[in-house]
Write a protein that binds this DNA or RNA. Structure first.
Lengths: 196, 196
DNA sequence: GCAATTTCCGAACACTGTGTTCGGTATCGT
DNA sequence: ACGATACCGAACACAGTGTTCGGAAATTGC
């Protein structure tokens, strides 16, 4: 009693259509009708599977989650002693898809997209961390911070230095995450020594 | 030849209405008609001043920007050797408004709101940093990272430890920002051995 | 105060998009 | 082949957007 081929076909068609649209339009401006046209799926059929555009997005991202887990678990079977860097792999992977980065950077729809992706990243990371120590810091805060820093770096990369190599970006990412800001970098916000 | 009082009244009424609504509804579900009802303003009048709900939001946040600049420059007290801590002041200030935090945390509308607030925070910070040093790190990346870390911390606070004191939260914030994660905390995401 | 100007109101309108319903048709699993 | 299931697509009610326009009301400058 496997899954009916028709439902599988319909769903993947909708997933693919959404992704295709995201790559060329701002997420916020995409309508259900756009998706139907792109996927060649009937209106009632759509609502038989998903409750809304956002619902479709979330379920679409489950694929991303699986992909991330795969990438991340490829480490255990690889060179685990020398260390494996999922973040760098992600930077490298993402660097090949400028349109995806543009979608994540985009104005109104970008925020919604980013939040959804953040959630997936956090889930994967949370699972990967297991019940490991967090060095005295609250576990969930660490997770959110890692995700946020990754996203910030990625966004900055695309917006300000798109020509930079993934390895360099990764180095910046690690600096921010593991060492923090140099003493004087955050002066005005942290400790004000402002000549007012 | 000042600004017509009717204009001023209408605009502040709309600003206030939006803020009031944000405090009790998810931003995404707020309609222009809600705003009109709350502010007692005619439909055509609204569109004579703003092009959309998002436009109104952005202009409303200009007030927030002014407030932040005031807070940041009002460092008359406590400006000793240890300096003045705008972040801590912000944590303390925000802790008094649970509904605002809820609005920023909220699902769909939260993301849009956060992005708008992030933009304002980044502007203020950018101006405050002037042409100061950034310790070898790209200036804009530092700004975005500070803002993102602040927001992450704030969000985590509200979601997971609302009873925590502002000073403690500020300490966590500074730890993340200035020292980074302790070795091992981010083990699954970051490589252990540091090739830098 | 008074007049000229500006703004506000509110109803009407066209438009876009959402989400549901239902009978007929095509496709699937066995 | 047959029964079950999924898909189609048109029609519908509904909510929200953004514009237009004439008349009423408030404001400013004098």
């Amino acid at each position: 009693m496997g899954i009916d081929r028709r439902v599988a076909r319909t769903r993947t068609a909708l997933y693919d259509a959404l992704v295709a649209l995201i790559r060329r339009k701002d997420y916020a401006t995409i309508t259900v009708e756009d998706i139907l046209a792109e996927a060649n799926v009937g209106r009632s059929t759509f609502y038989a599977h998903f409750t809304s555009k956002d619902d479709l997005l979330q379920r679409s991202l489950e694929r991303l989650r699986d992909l991330l887990i795969e990438v991340q678990q490829g480490s255990g079977h690889g060179a685990d002693a020398t260390g494996w860097d999922p973040a760098r792999t992600l930077f490298e992977h993402v660097s090949e898809y400028a349109d995806v980065q543009a979608a994540l950077a985009g104005g109104h729809g970008g925020a919604v997209l980013r939040e959804a992706v953040d959630k997936v990243l956090a889930d994967v990371l949370r699972q990967a961390m297991g019940t490991g120590l967090v060095g005295g810091l609250p576990r969930e805060l660490v997770i959110q911070h890692v995700v946020a820093t990754f996203n910030t770096t990625l966004h900055w990369w695309f917006e300000h230095r798109p020509e930079m190599a993934p390895a360099e970006v990764d180095a910046l990412f690690r600096q921010l995450l593991l060492r923090g800001l140099p003493a004087g970098a955050a002066a005005p916000f942290i400790v004000m020594a402002d000549p007012a």
